Simulated assay, not measured.
Amino acid sequence: MPDNLKDRRILITGGARGLGLAFAESAAREGAAVAIADLRHEQAQAQAERLRAAGHQAWALPLDLADPDAIRRCAEDAVQRLGGLDGLVNNGAVTDSGGVSAAELDIECWDRVMAVNVRGVWLMTMACSQALGASGRGAVVNLASDTALWGAPRLLAYAASKGAVIAMSRSLARELGPAGITVNAVAPGLTLGEATEQVAAKRHRHYVAQRALERPQTPDDVCGAVLFCLSDLSRFVTGQLLAVNGGFVMH
Protein backbone atom coordinates (compact mmCIF):
# COMPACT_ATOMS: atom_id res chain seq x y z
CA MET A 1 0.00 0.00 0.00
CA PRO A 2 2.39 2.71 -1.24
CA ASP A 3 1.96 6.15 0.33
CA ASN A 4 -1.15 4.91 2.12
CA LEU A 5 -0.14 7.00 5.13
CA LYS A 6 0.90 10.08 3.17
CA ASP A 7 0.69 13.22 5.31
CA ARG A 8 -0.44 11.26 8.37
CA ARG A 9 0.95 12.40 11.74
CA ILE A 10 1.75 9.45 13.97
CA LEU A 11 3.09 9.13 17.51
CA ILE A 12 4.81 5.83 18.33
CA THR A 13 5.73 4.99 21.91
CA GLY A 14 8.71 2.75 22.57
CA GLY A 15 9.94 3.69 19.11
CA ALA A 16 13.69 3.78 19.64
CA ARG A 17 14.25 0.11 18.87
CA GLY A 18 12.63 -3.21 18.00
CA LEU A 19 9.01 -3.28 16.93
CA GLY A 20 8.44 0.41 17.62
CA LEU A 21 11.34 1.42 15.39
CA ALA A 22 10.12 -0.91 12.64
CA PHE A 23 6.68 0.75 12.82
CA ALA A 24 8.26 4.22 12.64
CA GLU A 25 10.42 3.29 9.66
CA SER A 26 7.53 1.67 7.80
CA ALA A 27 5.15 4.58 8.44
CA ALA A 28 7.80 7.10 7.38
CA ARG A 29 8.44 5.21 4.14
CA GLU A 30 4.71 5.46 3.40
CA GLY A 31 4.77 9.24 3.74
CA ALA A 32 3.84 9.75 7.40
CA ALA A 33 5.48 12.22 9.76
CA VAL A 34 6.44 10.28 12.88
CA ALA A 35 7.23 11.18 16.46
CA ILE A 36 9.38 8.54 18.14
CA ALA A 37 8.80 8.62 21.90
CA ASP A 38 10.98 6.59 24.22
CA LEU A 39 12.63 6.48 27.63
CA ARG A 40 15.85 5.92 25.64
CA HIS A 41 15.74 9.49 24.36
CA GLU A 42 19.28 9.62 22.94
CA GLN A 43 18.66 6.43 20.99
CA ALA A 44 15.36 7.83 19.74
CA GLN A 45 17.11 11.01 18.65
CA ALA A 46 19.69 9.03 16.69
CA GLN A 47 16.97 7.07 14.91
CA ALA A 48 14.99 10.21 14.10
CA GLU A 49 18.12 11.85 12.69
CA ARG A 50 18.77 8.78 10.55
CA LEU A 51 15.22 8.89 9.17
CA ARG A 52 15.49 12.61 8.42
CA ALA A 53 18.79 12.02 6.62
CA ALA A 54 16.91 9.55 4.41
CA GLY A 55 14.39 12.26 3.51
CA HIS A 56 11.63 11.40 5.99
CA GLN A 57 9.87 13.51 8.61
CA ALA A 58 10.79 12.26 12.07
CA TRP A 59 11.26 13.69 15.55
CA ALA A 60 12.24 12.21 18.90
CA LEU A 61 10.44 12.90 22.17
CA PRO A 62 11.30 11.85 25.73
CA LEU A 63 8.75 9.61 27.42
CA ASP A 64 8.48 7.72 30.69
CA LEU A 65 5.24 5.72 30.58
CA ALA A 66 5.36 5.27 34.35
CA ASP A 67 5.04 9.06 34.81
CA PRO A 68 1.60 10.58 34.09
CA ASP A 69 3.08 14.08 33.73
CA ALA A 70 5.66 12.83 31.21
CA ILE A 71 2.87 11.21 29.20
CA ARG A 72 0.92 14.47 29.07
CA ARG A 73 3.99 16.44 28.02
CA CYS A 74 4.86 13.91 25.33
CA ALA A 75 1.37 14.06 23.82
CA GLU A 76 1.42 17.86 23.84
CA ASP A 77 4.88 17.95 22.26
CA ALA A 78 3.86 15.46 19.58
CA VAL A 79 0.82 17.52 18.59
CA GLN A 80 2.95 20.68 18.47
CA ARG A 81 5.79 19.10 16.49
CA LEU A 82 3.53 17.30 14.03
CA GLY A 83 0.87 20.00 13.75
CA GLY A 84 -1.83 17.60 14.92
CA LEU A 85 -2.22 13.87 15.29
CA ASP A 86 -3.82 11.21 13.09
CA GLY A 87 -2.43 8.05 14.66
CA LEU A 88 -1.13 6.71 17.97
CA VAL A 89 0.74 3.43 18.32
CA ASN A 90 0.88 2.38 21.97
CA ASN A 91 3.90 0.11 21.66
CA GLY A 92 5.97 1.00 24.74
CA ALA A 93 6.03 -1.71 27.41
CA VAL A 94 8.20 -3.53 29.93
CA THR A 95 8.60 -7.29 30.39
CA ASP A 96 10.07 -7.24 33.90
CA SER A 97 8.26 -10.41 35.01
CA GLY A 98 9.88 -12.70 32.42
CA GLY A 99 11.16 -16.02 33.81
CA VAL A 100 9.61 -15.51 37.25
CA SER A 101 6.88 -17.85 38.51
CA ALA A 102 3.61 -16.53 39.89
CA ALA A 103 4.74 -17.56 43.39
CA GLU A 104 8.05 -15.70 43.03
CA LEU A 105 6.64 -12.55 41.46
CA ASP A 106 6.92 -9.55 43.78
CA ILE A 107 4.37 -6.78 44.14
CA GLU A 108 6.77 -4.05 43.04
CA CYS A 109 7.39 -5.82 39.73
CA TRP A 110 3.67 -6.38 39.21
CA ASP A 111 2.89 -2.73 39.91
CA ARG A 112 5.57 -1.46 37.54
CA VAL A 113 4.41 -3.68 34.69
CA MET A 114 0.81 -2.57 35.19
CA ALA A 115 1.78 1.10 35.51
CA VAL A 116 3.67 1.10 32.20
CA ASN A 117 1.80 -1.47 30.10
CA VAL A 118 -1.76 -0.76 31.20
CA ARG A 119 -2.03 2.64 32.86
CA GLY A 120 0.43 4.09 30.34
CA VAL A 121 -1.72 2.97 27.39
CA TRP A 122 -4.85 4.43 28.98
CA LEU A 123 -3.26 7.77 29.87
CA MET A 124 -1.49 8.19 26.52
CA THR A 125 -4.68 7.45 24.63
CA MET A 126 -6.58 9.98 26.72
CA ALA A 127 -3.83 12.57 26.31
CA CYS A 128 -4.01 12.18 22.52
CA SER A 129 -7.76 11.73 22.12
CA GLN A 130 -8.67 15.37 21.50
CA ALA A 131 -6.11 15.75 18.72
CA LEU A 132 -7.03 12.38 17.21
CA GLY A 133 -10.69 13.34 17.15
CA ALA A 134 -9.92 16.70 15.57
CA SER A 135 -8.08 15.01 12.69
CA GLY A 136 -11.23 13.32 11.41
CA ARG A 137 -9.34 10.08 10.80
CA GLY A 138 -7.85 9.27 14.19
CA ALA A 139 -6.60 5.73 14.79
CA VAL A 140 -5.15 4.07 17.88
CA VAL A 141 -3.21 0.82 17.64
CA ASN A 142 -2.44 -0.90 20.93
CA LEU A 143 0.29 -3.54 20.98
CA ALA A 144 -0.88 -6.59 22.89
CA SER A 145 0.82 -10.00 22.83
CA ASP A 146 -0.14 -13.56 22.02
CA THR A 147 1.09 -14.48 25.51
CA ALA A 148 -2.33 -13.24 26.67
CA LEU A 149 -4.04 -15.62 24.24
CA TRP A 150 -2.30 -18.88 25.10
CA GLY A 151 -1.40 -18.28 28.75
CA ALA A 152 2.38 -18.12 28.73
CA PRO A 153 3.82 -19.48 32.00
CA ARG A 154 6.39 -17.63 34.10
CA LEU A 155 5.30 -14.35 32.55
CA LEU A 156 2.26 -13.58 34.65
CA ALA A 157 2.42 -9.80 35.02
CA TYR A 158 3.27 -9.22 31.36
CA ALA A 159 0.61 -11.62 30.05
CA ALA A 160 -1.98 -10.10 32.40
CA SER A 161 -1.06 -6.59 31.28
CA LYS A 162 -1.45 -7.51 27.63
CA GLY A 163 -4.80 -9.15 28.33
CA ALA A 164 -5.83 -5.86 29.90
CA VAL A 165 -4.67 -4.00 26.78
CA ILE A 166 -6.96 -6.20 24.66
CA ALA A 167 -9.94 -5.52 26.93
CA MET A 168 -9.17 -1.79 27.11
CA SER A 169 -9.00 -1.59 23.32
CA ARG A 170 -12.58 -2.78 23.07
CA SER A 171 -13.88 -0.40 25.73
CA LEU A 172 -11.93 2.53 24.26
CA ALA A 173 -13.25 1.70 20.79
CA ARG A 174 -16.79 2.22 22.06
CA GLU A 175 -15.95 5.36 24.01
CA LEU A 176 -13.94 7.02 21.24
CA GLY A 177 -16.03 5.79 18.32
CA PRO A 178 -18.42 8.79 18.46
CA ALA A 179 -15.37 11.02 17.85
CA GLY A 180 -14.53 9.00 14.73
CA ILE A 181 -11.48 7.37 16.35
CA THR A 182 -10.79 3.69 15.73
CA VAL A 183 -9.06 1.60 18.39
CA ASN A 184 -7.63 -1.83 17.58
CA ALA A 185 -5.11 -4.21 19.12
CA VAL A 186 -2.34 -6.15 17.40
CA ALA A 187 -0.91 -9.18 19.21
CA PRO A 188 2.51 -10.27 17.92
CA GLY A 189 4.15 -13.54 18.83
CA LEU A 190 7.72 -13.88 20.07
CA THR A 191 9.62 -11.51 17.79
CA LEU A 192 13.34 -11.33 17.19
CA GLY A 193 14.91 -8.14 18.55
CA GLU A 194 16.64 -6.49 21.46
CA ALA A 195 13.65 -6.98 23.77
CA THR A 196 13.70 -10.78 23.32
CA GLU A 197 17.44 -11.41 23.38
CA GLN A 198 17.16 -12.69 26.97
CA VAL A 199 14.54 -15.29 26.00
CA ALA A 200 16.01 -18.79 26.04
CA ALA A 201 16.87 -20.30 22.66
CA LYS A 202 14.72 -23.32 23.58
CA ARG A 203 11.65 -21.10 23.80
CA HIS A 204 12.41 -19.49 20.43
CA ARG A 205 12.67 -22.98 18.89
CA HIS A 206 9.38 -23.99 20.52
CA TYR A 207 7.61 -21.02 18.97
CA VAL A 208 8.99 -21.76 15.51
CA ALA A 209 8.09 -25.45 15.70
CA GLN A 210 4.50 -24.75 16.78
CA ARG A 211 3.76 -22.11 14.15
CA ALA A 212 1.82 -22.87 10.99
CA LEU A 213 4.54 -20.83 9.29
CA GLU A 214 7.66 -22.48 10.68
CA ARG A 215 10.17 -19.65 10.87
CA PRO A 216 11.28 -16.95 13.30
CA GLN A 217 9.15 -13.80 13.50
CA THR A 218 10.77 -10.45 12.70
CA PRO A 219 9.55 -6.91 13.39
CA ASP A 220 8.76 -6.46 9.69
CA ASP A 221 6.20 -9.27 9.98
CA VAL A 222 4.09 -7.08 12.28
CA CYS A 223 4.31 -3.81 10.37
CA GLY A 224 1.62 -4.59 7.81
CA ALA A 225 -1.03 -5.17 10.46
CA VAL A 226 -0.15 -1.95 12.31
CA LEU A 227 -0.07 0.16 9.14
CA PHE A 228 -3.41 -1.32 8.06
CA CYS A 229 -4.97 -0.27 11.36
CA LEU A 230 -3.57 3.25 10.93
CA SER A 231 -4.79 3.65 7.36
CA ASP A 232 -8.08 4.39 5.64
CA LEU A 233 -8.27 0.71 4.68
CA SER A 234 -9.48 0.04 8.23
CA ARG A 235 -11.77 3.02 8.81
CA PHE A 236 -14.72 0.71 9.62
CA VAL A 237 -12.66 -1.71 11.71
CA THR A 238 -12.56 -0.98 15.43
CA GLY A 239 -12.46 -2.85 18.72
CA GLN A 240 -10.73 -5.79 17.04
CA LEU A 241 -7.74 -7.96 17.88
CA LEU A 242 -5.40 -9.10 15.13
CA ALA A 243 -3.00 -11.87 16.16
CA VAL A 244 0.21 -11.74 14.11
CA ASN A 245 2.26 -14.79 15.09
CA GLY A 246 2.57 -17.10 12.10
CA GLY A 247 -0.27 -19.28 13.33
CA PHE A 248 1.15 -20.11 16.78
CA VAL A 249 -2.21 -18.99 18.14
CA MET A 250 -5.15 -18.89 15.72
CA HIS A 251 -7.54 -16.33 17.14
Rank of each mutant, 00 (worst) to 15 (best):
I181D: 01
A134T: 08
C128V: 00
L230K: 03
A209T: 05
G136K: 07
N142W: 05
G177P: 01
V249G: 13
M124A: 07
V199Q: 08
V222K: 06
A152H: 08
G193Y: 01
S234H: 12
A160W: 02
G239F: 06
V226D: 06
S161G: 04
I181W: 00
V186T: 06
L213E: 14
R205W: 12
Q210H: 15
A152K: 14
R235H: 11
H206L: 11
D232E: 15
G193Q: 03
A195N: 08
I166E: 15
V141N: 04
R205M: 13
R203C: 04
A164M: 04
C128M: 03
P178G: 05
V183Y: 04
R235M: 10
N142T: 02
T238W: 07
V244C: 08
S129P: 00
Q130W: 03
R170L: 13
P153C: 11
P219M: 09
A131P: 01
R211T: 08
L172C: 07
A187K: 07
L155M: 14
S231P: 09
G247K: 10
Y158E: 02
Q240P: 15
V165I: 12
A201T: 07
A139K: 05
R235Y: 07
F236P: 04
P188L: 00
P178V: 11
A157Y: 01
A243T: 14
G151R: 13
V199Y: 07
H251L: 15
L230I: 09
V226S: 03
A157C: 06
A160S: 13
G151V: 12
S161N: 01
L156T: 11
P219H: 04
G163S: 11
R174C: 11
V186H: 03
C229H: 13
G239P: 09
T125M: 06
N245V: 14
A152N: 15
E197S: 15
L213Q: 12
M126A: 05
M250S: 13
S145C: 10
A167K: 08
A173L: 07
A144S: 15
M124E: 02
A152Q: 13
L156P: 00
P219E: 06
L190F: 03
H251K: 11
A209N: 07
D146L: 08
L230D: 02
T182P: 00
S169C: 13
D146I: 11
A127G: 03
Q198H: 14
N245F: 05
T125I: 01
A159F: 05
G177K: 09
P153M: 09
T218P: 03
D220S: 14
R205Q: 15
Q240R: 12
A195I: 10
M168E: 11
L172W: 08
K162S: 09
